[in-house]
């Protein structure tokens, strides 16, 4: 555990809590892509199956259980409790165009051809593109609420901080996981346009609005 990894994990945690608080306080999931949230639930469910096969640390297990349960809670709130506020007309990204190619790639490019390892690889690849339905939705509506922007900034920062963690681990521990690093870089790059808008607008007190 190094400082980049710890802040990254805390940023990830903060993002999830921000999203849940926003929905709970406003009794609404307007502006949030349910498709991205389903993909995140799928990411955690397929990655953390090792909860049943290997123990790393209490921290590791608690975080995994937290991520799985909160992602399921988010999906439940969006599709059941606050379904009336879900903006499905703007959430039209075709997720099969992500899940099917990513599934195929996980079969072809992995560290080891075993069920758990393929599922782990699938989750790493899927996480890297899971935000696309959310970004697509924002480009369709042309705006994002400030709290949604904070959520996305925390969520994007997490993988960017993991890149610093991988640089650190490469130099000081000789650790290098090519699959995680490449996917993590792709994931971070997808957020760059949003990061630019966040810094130039949200941090100056303005909402994110895109030209029609």
């Amino acid at each position: 555990m190094n400082i980049f990894r710890l802040i990254g994990d805390m940023s990830h945690l903060l993002a999830i809590i921000l999203l849940l608080l926003k929905m709970w306080k406003t009794r609404s999931c307007a502006g949030i892509s349910g498709k991205s949230q389903i993909l995140f639930a799928l990411v955690f469910a397929s990655r953390y199956l090792d909860l049943f096969t290997s123990f790393v640390s209490v921290y590791n297990s608690v975080m995994k259980i937290f991520f799985i349960s909160t992602s399921l809670l988010t999906v439940y709130l969006m599709y059941f409790k606050f379904r009336a506020t879900y903006d499905s007309n703007h959430d039209t990204f075709r997720v099969e165009f992500l899940v099917i190619p990513v599934g195929g790639l996980a079969f072809l490019v992995n560290h080891e051809f075993s069920p758990l390892e393929i599922l782990w690889t699938f989750s790493i690849y899927l996480e890297s593109v899971a935000i696309l339905p959310q970004l697509f939705m924002m480009s369709k509506t042309g705006e994002a609420e400030t709290i949604t922007s904070h959520y996305l900034f925390a969520l994007g920062s997490y993988r960017a901080l993991y890149i610093l963690n991988w640089v650190y681990r490469y130099y000081f521990e000789g650790f290098f996981d090519l699959i995680a690093v490449v996917a993590g870089c792709v994931q971070t790059i997808l957020y760059c346009d949003f990061f630019y808008l966040y810094i130039t607008k949200v941090l100056k007190g303005k909402r994110i609005t895109l030209p029609a």
């Binding site: 990894r5 994990d9 990830h12 090792d50 290997s54 790393v56 640390s57 590791n60 975080m63 995994k64 991520f67 560290h111 782990w120 993991y162 963690n165 000789g174 650790f175 290098f176 996981d177 699959i179 995680a180």
Partner: peptide, 10 residues
């Protein structure tokens, strides 16, 4: 260099 059998990252 290699990947760990037990994955400690989240």
């Amino acid at each position: 260099l290699g990947y760990p059998e037990t994955k400690d990252e989240l």
